[in-house]
Design a protein around this nucleic acid. Sequence first.
DNA 1: GACTCTATTTATAATTA
DNA 2: TTAATTATAAATAGAGT
Lengths: 98, 98
Amino acid sequence: MGRKKVEMKRIEEKSSRQVTLCKRRKGLIKKAKQLSILCDVDVAVVVFSDRGTLYESSTPSRFLHALLNIYIVSVCLYFTIQNSIIKLFIITSESREE
Amino acid sequence: MGRKKVEMKRIEEKSSRQVTLCKRRKGLIKKAKQLSILCDVDVAVVVFSDRGTLYESSTPSRFLHALLNIYIVSVCLYFTIQNSIIKLFIITSESREE
DNA sequence: GACTCTATTTATAATTA
DNA sequence: TTAATTATAAATAGAGT
C-alpha cells in the first residue's frame, strides 16, 4: 500500500516517522472500528507516543470498566493515568456510529 | 479488500462472523506490530469476544505497567481479570520480533 | 508541518480444495 | 468443516500543494 514497499524497521527521519504515525494510527483505529461492527465485539487500541506522555485508543466500556473500574459510553474523552494525558476514542455497542 | 465490498454492519451468519473475526483480528494485530516498529511506539490491541469471556491483545509493557502495575517483556502470556481469561500478545522494544 | 492525490502494496471476501 | 487461493477492495508511501 503505497508507492514503494517499506522495510520493517524504525523510520529514522523524524518528520517522516510522525507522518507515518498519524496515517497508520488513523488506519488502525478505522480497522478496529470495522472489526467491532462486523463481528460484534469490543475492541481497544492504544498507541503510546514515543515520549510516553500521550496515547490514543479506541476502546470498549467493558475494557475500561474492568481495568479502571469506571463505565464510559461517550465517543471521545480525555483523562489522566499516572501523569500521562490519555485521549480515548470509545467504541461500544452503545456508541459505535462514525 | 476482497471479492466484494462489504457492508458495515454486523455479520448475522455465525460461521462467517467467526471467520471474519479471525482474519481481521490477525490483520489488526499485524498492523499494530508494524506501527510499533516503524514509528517506535508502544501499541496495545484488545479484542473482546462476543461473550465477554476472552480477549486478545498486542500490548506494550508500559501500558501494563501503568494500568496493572506490572512489567512484562515476554511475547505471549495468559492471565485473568475479573474472571475473564486474557491472552496477551506483547509488543515492546524489548520483544518486538515476529 | 499539514492536506491532497494516486500508483502501488497489502488485506481480505468469496471461492475452491 | 478448516485451510489455501485469488480477485478485488482498501490502505498508504511518496509526491505535490
